[in-house]
Design a protein around this nucleic acid. Structure first.
Length: 263
DNA sequence: ATGGTCGTTGCACGA
């Protein structure tokens, strides 16, 4: 495959696009992703900096609500048939957590799965229902035989290799059997966790708490995932979690995750 | 054992 014939797709929970814009600019100029899924823009649609991306050669679609949540897809390889929220025909999710569009023949969703907070919390039930709706969305929106990507912050560590100290997380959200089963149910529609498909390594995290020097102590979780259908998986050359982006001045608490796909 | 930091907003709360 000759140079330049790859599609570079990335996902990044930026924890406020406004606060992160200098870091996003630096990262885009360095990495030049073809498609970038953003989560936690914390922006209204009106305030979303579409011109900032247009100036750098990107089209963009945003589904935001303002103070919280907010997801976007930016692309320099086409951006067609956007769908905000779930396509399952049920009343829309009141929170802005999902947007879908077609980029370079890929049906791409940017997903921000609810945090869950704790196992007794209403938000935990909402999280499990949200994952069930994600599968229903895929069933309504596309087919597993297509080139499908669901990338984002899942707030679920798929297995114990994805948690720095599993013993500390017994009884906590992000690792519960029900959450992991909900992820497997979405995957069983026809998606694979591309990082885990390619690599067996543990201690490869994508999120580290801002507090208590968690990043420097290597105390994180791998909760930012790129799920791909078989057609995408077969084109996946490598997946990288860009830890560099978690360093330096005013980082997000999440690193970007990127995949290069053979064309 | 607890809290520890950010981002939002507005002087608390979500992650």
């Amino acid at each position: 495959m000759e140079y330049g014939s790859l599609v570079r797709l990335a996902t990044w929970n930026v924890n406020s696009l406004k606060a992160r814009l200098p870091r996003v600019e630096e990262w885009i100029d360095d990495i030049r992703p073809d498609v970038l899924c953003l989560q936690e823009t914390k922006s209204t649609d009106d305030a979303f900096p579409s011109q900032f991306f247009a100036d750098r050669g990107y089209e963009s679609v945003h589904h935001g609500q303002g103070q919280w949540n907010g997801v976007a897809i930016i692309s320099r390889v086409g951006l067609e048939d956007p769908v905000a929220n779930f396509a399952d025909g049920l009343p829309p999710d009141p929170e802005a957590r999902l947007i879908t569009a077609t980029c370079a023949g890929l049906r791409v969703s940017s997903a921000y799965v609810p945090n869950g907070r704790d196992l007794e919390n209403d938000h935990y039930r909402y999280k499990l229902e949200w994952m069930a709706r994600l599968r229903a969305h895929l069933e309504a929106d596309t087919r597993p035989e297509a080139a499908v990507v669901v990338a984002g912050d899942f707030n679920i560590a798929p297995d114990d290799r994805d948690v720095h100290d599993p013993a500390k997380f017994v009884g906590a959200t992000h690792v519960s059997t029900a959450e992991r089963d909900a992820l497997r149910s979405v995957e069983s529609w026809g998606l694979s966790d591309l990082f885990r498909y390619l690599y067996e390594e543990d201690r490869m995290y994508s999120w580290w708490d801002y507090r208590a020097g968690a990043f420097n102590k290597g105390e994180g979780m791998r909760i930012d995932l790129i799920l791909g259908s078989e057609a995408v998986r077969n084109r996946s050359r490598w997946v990288i979690i860009d830890r560099q982006a978690r360093k330096g001045d005013k980082p997000s608490d999440h690193s970007p995750v990127l995949v290069d796909l053979d064309e």
